[in-house]
């Protein structure tokens, strides 16, 4: 099962290495990872997509909580939540392709953020399914480069992850 873990931790050097190291040491996998300081710059928020059965996810959560710099951990997938990732795709866009790519981008409410006579760079946001579907829809196009942020997310409604 896919889980999204949100982790609030001290924004200190070494904290991220410790967290990533934990996953490597204990053989847990990381599908994607996203980290940046919060509005309170002493805290970082990290969003991590992982996979595993309930027992593994329970262990991951407990092991994360044991890290001295980790303040709080929640499993967003336990409740309703919103999740988004951002993706930039640079494609070969020449001739008739230009119109086709533009139309597809519009359908996905993606934006073309850089243009040259032969390329487009498209930015699209959404959950992992949408991003995958967008890439799928570009299958007739030459994809030159893809850059993705990994998932970020919050719980719906009043529920928050804060101090």
């Amino acid at each position: 099962m896919r889980h999204i873990l949100s982790v609030l931790m001290e924004n200190e050097s070494g904290a991220l290495a410790r967290l990533v190291g934990l996953f490597a040491q204990r053989g847990y996998n990381i599908d994607s990872l996203n980290v940046a300081p919060t509005d309170d710059v002493t805290l970082s928020r990290l969003t991590l997509v992982t996979r595993g059965d309930d027992q593994i996810i329970e262990q991951i959560t407990k092991q994360l909580n044991k890290l001295v710099e980790v303040v709080k951990v929640v499993d967003l997938t336990e409740g309703t939540h919103v999740e988004r990732g951002l993706m930039m795709v640079k494609v070969r866009a020449a001739g008739a392709q230009r119109e086709e790519v533009k139309r597809t981008s519009d359908i996905f409410r993606a934006q073309i953020i850089d243009v040259t006579p032969t390329t487009y760079t498209i930015m699209v946001t959404g959950d992992e399914e949408k991003l995958a579907a967008f890439l799928e829809s570009l299958s007739g196009t030459t994809i030159m480069e893809v850059a993705r942020t990994g998932v970020s997310g919050v719980a719906r409604g009043e529920k928050v992850l804060s101090l």
């Binding site: 070494g14 290495a17 410790r18 190291g21 040491q25 001295v68």
Partner: peptide, 14 residues
Amino acid sequence: MVGISRPVVKHNMI
């Protein structure tokens, strides 16, 4: 040392 010892310490600091 912080890196080498990381998997075998409760915590480490520089």
